[in-house]
Amino acid sequence: MGVILMKGNEAIGESAIIAGCRHYFGYPITPQNELPAYMAARLPKVGGTFLQAESEVAAINMVYGAAAAGARVMTSSSSPGVSLKMEGISYLAGAELPAVVVNMMRGGPGLGNIAGAQGDYFQAVKGGGHGDYHSIVLAPSTVQELADLTGKAFDLADEYRMVVILLGDGFTGQMSEPITLPKPSGRSFDKSSWSLSGAKGRDPHIIASMRLNPDNALEMLNLKLQAKYRQIEKSETLWESVSVDDAEYLLVGFGLSARICKSAVSVLRKAGVKAGLFRPITLWPFPAGQLAAVSAGKKKVLVVEMNAGQMVQDVRLSVGGAPVDFLGTLGGATPQVDAIVERITGHAG
């Protein structure tokens, strides 16, 4: 199959199936409904299970069950719906279960609106649910990347036995672009040592997120989780840099806002202003070391987000000397290229 025009939400669905996902549980919410609709149509044809749950809470607990049984499983929602899943995500983290959770963010807080937004960075990256846990957070910015990172998300989830969040926004989910569907990664993961596959002829496996015995059981789990997280921080950061080497000004954005920044870099370069872009693809683990290196010696770092300033906190922790400025848009509004250019040059582009 060659290049096809595909909508972001549908590209995730097909890529999940290519990656071997055969179980999807979810509850509808705009702007990600094309994904469950796609799974409802496709999964039965490949021997899978699509189930529309009675709520987001039910869906994430169905994910817990399927993951415990060793299945590749996915759920998706948008901001208010993902809030409802947070308890379940914490339980998945505590039970060390692999799952992929898609959040096509919309404007908030509350029920908000149905426009794309990036207000859930803190929720996805800094916990969201209770307890000391992380999810790996991937932030695609094109439909091709949505497709490619979906397969990657399943592999990372299985490799580290944890939740991977695909953090997109309503615009990216609704957007159509030409893509080439990914090939299966070919990686396989042996889950036989822990999955609940029937205990006939062996000792039972126990999957639990409550640990009372011995007294230090929960402490030991947490130490193990933290060691795992340190390893992931070392080996799994992903990022993209554009025209950074000779740049005097560095734009930093993720997802859709990074694409708007890329257009701004183009406009600025045309005007003779040396600008570049650093785009974290993994939001956790955050590519702090790479950003520190890239930003060294720049006149200014400008972070652009569709929120009131969330990733900018991680940027400030990463950047050494350069001053960090922030440009944000709220409630589903999108940053304008002209506004970014003006913030860098001090006058309209």
Partner: peptide, 10 residues
Amino acid sequence: MSRSTVTGGD
């Protein structure tokens, strides 16, 4: 991991 350049051409 991915590096590219933007020229600002026409």
